[in-house]
Design a protein around this nucleic acid. Structure first.
Lengths: 177, 177
DNA sequence: CAGTATCCTGTCCGATACTG
DNA sequence: CAGTATCGGACAGGATACTG
C-alpha cells in the first residue's frame, strides 16, 4: 500500500497492517518466533534478497516487533530477537497457520502446532477469557466503543448493527476445495 | 509480492498469504464479516478506488473467501457474501484486531469485540481445544509432521528444535510504546 | 448502482556488486 | 558474516472517464 490514508483509519486492523502488512514482515516474524535471529539464517530460510531483508528487518525493529542486539564485538555483529510486542503477535500467526492448514495443505499438514507435554497436535480455539465461551460470530460482535468518533458510530448504525452476520448465512457453494 | 517462489513454500502461513496477503483483501474481508456485501458500501467504507475494489473482489471470489450472488435480475446486480472459508478467517482478523488494540489504540480502543449476552468487552484467549490449556510459546511449539519433506525436517533439526524460543527470552527495551 | 477501461505513479522486491 | 548501494522490472493501486 502506498497511500497514507489508512493511518487515519481508526481501525486496529488497518493500523496493525501498517506495521506487519507486507508479506515478508509476516514471514520474517514467523522465523523469528521459531528462534531464528541471524541475518544469514533469515536469508537462507526465506530466500529473500539481502537488500530486501535488511529493509524489512529495519522496519520491524522500527516497529518494535524485533530488537537488534549485538552479540559479538570484535567484528560488530547484530542479531534480531523477538520483543514482547512481537511475541504477542504469535496468536495471529498461529490462527493464520491453522487456517492455512485447513484450506491449503494438500492432504496432511506439514507443519503443525504440537503440545510438547502430550505430543498431540494442537487444535486451536478462540475463547473469551472472561466467560471461557468459544468465540461465535452470532454472540461476539464488533462494536464501537465510547471512544469511537461519530463517523464510526454512524457506520455501525447504518450498516452492520442489524446485520452483523449476512442475513442468509454464508454461502457454501465455493467450498468444494 | 510478485514472484511465485512462495507458492512452493510448504508453509501454511506463506500459502495463506498467497490469498489474503494484500492489504485490501484483509480490509475487505473485515467489512464482509461485518455484513457489508454491496460494491458501493465497500467502496464508501474503505475509500478504495473502484477499479482496485473490483480487482480485489474478484480475487477474493476466486480464492473462495467471498461468493458472488445475484440479488436483482432486472438490472443484474451482484453482491458479495462471505463463505465458510471466509468465515473461518475471522479468528485471524480478531486476533489481529486485539493485537492492534493493544499496541495501536491511542488510549481507549474504538472498536472492540463484545459479548452481546453480557455486554462485556471480550478478552480473546487462544487455547488448545483438546486440553483447554492456553497456548504458551514454551509448551506449544511448531513441529514438522510426518508429511513434511526432508527440507523442512532439516530446518527444524538445525535451527529451531532446540531453540523454539530465543534463549534469553524476548527483549523488552523497545516496549515503551 | 455496479462495475470496466485506460493511464500513470509509487514502491516492493530481486539481481548484482561491493564493504568491514 | 552482515550488511549497503544501485539498478530495473513488475504490479498494486489511485484518478478519471465511461457503460448498462
Amino acid at each position: 500500500m502506498k497511500n497514507k490514508s489508512l493511518v487515519n483509519m481508526p481501525c486496529p486492523v488497518a493500523r496493525s497492517l501498517e506495521h506487519v502488512g507486507e508479506w515478508w514482515n509476516i514471514l520474517i516474524l514467523r522465523e523469528a518466533l521459531l528462534g531464528v535471529s541471524r541475518f544469514d539464517d533469515f536469508q537462507n530460510h526465506l530466500g529473500i534478497a539481502t537488500s530486501t531483508l535488511a529493509k524489512r528487518l529495519n522496519a520491524l525493529v522500527e516497529s518494535g516487533l524485533l530488537a537488534r542486539r549485538q552479540y559479538c564485538e570484535k567484528p560488530p555483529r547484530d542479531e534480531y530477537v523477538i520483543t514482547k510486542k512481537g511475541l504477542d503477535f504469535r496468536p495471529v500467526l498461529l490462527t493464520l497457520m491453522q487456517w492455512g492448514n485447513t484450506y491449503y495443505a494438500d492432504g496432511e499438514p506439514m507443519i503443525q502446532l504440537v503440545d510438547t507435554e502430550t505430543n498431540q497436535a494442537v487444535d486451536l480455539m478462540l475463547v473469551d477469557r472472561n466467560t471461557q465461551v468459544e468465540i461465535d460470530p452470532q454472540r461476539h460482535q464488533s462494536q464501537p466503543r465510547p471512544a469511537a468518533d461519530d463517523m464510526i458510530k454512524a457506520r455501525f448504525e447504518a450498516s452492520s448493527a442489524a446485520v452483523a452476520m449476512p442475513q442468509q448465512g454464508p454461502v457454501d457453494q465455493y467450498l468444494k476445495t
